[in-house]
Simulated scan of single mutants.
Amino acid sequence: MKGESQMEEMRLMYHKKADGMLYPNLKLPEIQKEDLTQVGKYGMMAAEYLKENERNRYNTLYRLGRLGEKMKEVDEEANNLLETLMRNYLKIHKPKEPSSTMEMWKKREQAKMMAEEVVLKRIVYRFH
């Protein structure tokens, strides 16, 4: 019988209580408190977005102890995309005077602002 083989596979052990009943020895997995201290800027932003807009998903990840892990993944993905987009922007928009510190700083800030807009929309503010 199918039902019996499943029960045999589970191999539940029982213990007897004072009331004479047998109770299964069940152990719930320990839930560790989420550690978001190692999560970067974009991971924290994604966690905050989930908390405010996708509360069920946030609670599920939190209860399963996967929120920190997932937000680290989001942060890593966001930083990789940010680097790529900034690099591409700077290849296309070369400074007229490369020795000018101010011009180089402006170009880098423009690249960062444009890349960050894309990163926020594509990665941070989405359902994870």
Rank of each mutant, 00 (worst) to 15 (best):
K27T: 01
L28C: 03
P29K: 14
E30D: 12
I31G: 07
Q32F: 12
Q32A: 13
E34S: 05
E34H: 07
D35P: 00
D35I: 01
L36Y: 10
L36H: 10
L36A: 07
T37D: 08
T37I: 00
Q38H: 12
V39G: 01
G40Y: 15
G40R: 14
G40W: 13
K41Q: 01
K41Y: 15
K41P: 02
Y42Q: 09
A46K: 12
A47F: 04
A47S: 06
A47T: 09
A47I: 00
E48N: 11
E48T: 14
Y49E: 00
Y49V: 06
Y49G: 02
Y49R: 02
L50M: 06
L50Q: 04
L50Y: 05
K51R: 14
E52N: 12
E52T: 12
E54F: 05
E54K: 12
R55L: 13
R55A: 14
N56E: 15
N56V: 14
Y58L: 09
T60Q: 10
T60P: 01
L61H: 00
L61D: 01
L61E: 02
Y62K: 14
R63I: 00
R63Q: 05
R63T: 03
R63V: 00
L64C: 05
G65Y: 02
G65I: 01
G65S: 02
R66H: 03
R66W: 02
R66Y: 03
L67G: 10
L67N: 05
L67R: 09
G68V: 00
G68F: 01
E69W: 01
E69M: 04
K70A: 04
K70Y: 05
M71S: 07
M71I: 01
K72W: 06
E73G: 05
V74M: 08
V74D: 07
V74P: 11
D75A: 00
D75C: 00
E76F: 04
E76T: 10
E76D: 12
E76L: 03
N79E: 10
N79G: 01
L81S: 12
L81F: 06
L81H: 09
L81G: 10
L82F: 10
L82V: 10
L82A: 02
E83Y: 15
E83H: 15
T84S: 09
T84H: 11
T84P: 03
L85E: 07
L85P: 06
L85V: 04
M86Q: 10
M86L: 11
M86D: 06
R87L: 11
R87S: 13
R87K: 11
N88I: 06
N88K: 15
N88L: 15
N88Y: 11
Y89K: 06
Y89Q: 05
L90E: 08
K91R: 15
K91E: 13
I92Q: 15
I92C: 01
I92W: 08
P95D: 07
K96F: 14
P98L: 14
P98D: 10
S99W: 02
S99C: 08
S99N: 10
S99T: 14
S99V: 05
S100E: 08
T101V: 15
